[in-house]
Simulated assay, not measured.
Amino acid sequence: MNIDTDNFRHIRSFVRREGRLTLAQQRALNELWPRFGIASGPEPIDLDSVFGRQAMRVLEIGFGNGESLAAMAAAAPYTDFIGIEVHRPGVGHLLLQIEQHELSNVRVLCEDAVEVLETRINDASLDRVQIFFPDPWHKARHHKRRLIQPAFVSLLARKLRSGGHLHLATDWEHYAQHMLDTLRASTAFSNTSPCGDYCPRPEYRPLTKFERRGQRLGHGVWDLIFERR
């Protein structure tokens, strides 16, 4: 499965808008990163060695402050979670959550997800990839910057095992339709929705503070769950 790298490598999984680290977040980066962080490097990551076991593997791209990822890890101790986030305050916050909940099944990367997937995650090594509320780039002239594009979907398909799942969620209806059209066009995935479009929020995905606030304001949220053929 070939990827048009000339048109793909400029797409990044983030826009850097990093705020200040709190003292607690800086302490977490200093003290907890050596245990739970995965250092940057060119070589593929040996996930069995990193976690010290074989287990179901879930990768989350752009976990924000990490509270929902920590909650999922706490609820599924026999599943290993890998979180990718470039904003260090969010990484520090997740490390604090890992410490607070005494989690041993979470590891963190502070790198661009596209580069990590291209070079550091082995093919067919993941059971689920989840991307919740990515930047919608709502202005039409910025739509080309959206993460969910055909080339990226092809890359994700390579990293998922057969029968694995790609779970996306957004509160922008236009982006939800774009995601749906993009995934429907992929021959690597089939839609798990019984209606052929969106899925109810599964129990494993916690409601975020951002999402609860949106619900109070009457905003919709669209979940898409596609299975790797």
Results as ranks from 00 to 15, higher is better:
Ala39Trp: 06
Asp223Val: 10
Arg212Ile: 08
Met56Leu: 14
Gly196His: 11
His93Asp: 06
His143Gly: 05
Ala76Gln: 10
Gly83Pro: 00
Arg145Gln: 11
Glu227Trp: 03
Arg141Asn: 05
Phe51His: 03
Leu224Cys: 05
Glu67Asp: 15
Ala140Thr: 13
Thr182Asn: 10
Cys110Phe: 02
Thr170Ile: 07
Ala39Gly: 11
Asp171Ala: 05
Ala124Ser: 13
Leu103Lys: 14
Pro194Val: 12
Thr5Arg: 08
Lys144Trp: 09
Asn7Tyr: 13
Thr182Tyr: 08
Gly196Glu: 11
Cys195Trp: 05
His178Gln: 14
Ala24Asn: 12
Gly19Tyr: 05
Glu67Thr: 15
His219Thr: 14
Ala24Ile: 10
Gly90Ala: 10
Arg12Ser: 06
Glu43Leu: 11
Pro200Val: 09
Arg120Met: 05
Ile3Arg: 01
Leu95Arg: 01
His93Met: 12
Leu147Ser: 02
Glu18Trp: 00
Arg53Met: 05
Val221Arg: 05
Phe226Ser: 06
Leu168Gly: 00
Glu85Trp: 04
Pro200Leu: 07
Gly163Gln: 13
Ile38Val: 14
Gln130Phe: 06
Thr182Glu: 08
Ala176Pro: 02
Val116Ala: 04
Gly92Val: 11
Arg184Ser: 10
Cys110Trp: 04
Leu168Asn: 01
Leu117Trp: 00
Met72Gln: 10
Arg107Leu: 04
Ala55Arg: 09
Met72Ile: 03
Arg20Asn: 11
Pro206Ser: 01
Glu118Gly: 08
Cys199Ser: 06
Glu203Val: 08
Ala140Pro: 06
Arg229Trp: 13
His87Ala: 11
Gly90Ile: 09
Glu67Met: 15
Leu126Glu: 01
Leu59Ser: 04
Glu18Tyr: 00
Ile38Lys: 02
Pro194Trp: 08
Arg201Pro: 00
Leu94Tyr: 03
Ile45Gly: 01
Asn122Ser: 15
Leu183Glu: 00
Val116Asp: 01
Ala73Arg: 01
Pro44Thr: 09
Asn191His: 10
Ala113Ser: 08
Ala74Val: 15
Phe14Trp: 13
Glu85Thr: 06
His93Tyr: 11
Pro77Thr: 08
Gln97Lys: 14
Val114His: 07
Arg27His: 13
Gly19Asp: 05
Thr187His: 09
Thr5Trp: 12
Ala70Cys: 03
Gly62Glu: 02
Asp123Trp: 09
Val91Leu: 04
Ala28Gly: 00
Leu117Lys: 02
Gly64Gln: 01
Arg20Gln: 14
Gly196Val: 15
His178Trp: 09
Leu160His: 08
Met72Lys: 07
Trp33Met: 08
Thr208Glu: 07
Ile131Arg: 06
Val114Asn: 07
Arg9Val: 13
Cys199Met: 11
Pro34Arg: 02
Asp171Gly: 03
Leu224Ser: 05
Pro194Arg: 07
Phe189Arg: 06
Phe210Gln: 00
Lys159Thr: 09
Ile225Tyr: 00
Ile148Ser: 01
Gly164Asp: 01
Val116Gly: 02
Gly37Lys: 00
Glu102Trp: 12
Pro136Leu: 04
Asp112Met: 04
Asn191Gly: 09
Ala55Asp: 04
Val129Ala: 05
Glu18Val: 00
Pro136Ala: 04
Leu155Arg: 13
Glu118Leu: 13
Gly83Asn: 02
Leu69Trp: 10
Tyr175Ile: 05
Phe63Lys: 01
Pro77Lys: 07
Val15Lys: 07
Asp46Gln: 02
Glu211Asn: 03
Gly52Ala: 09
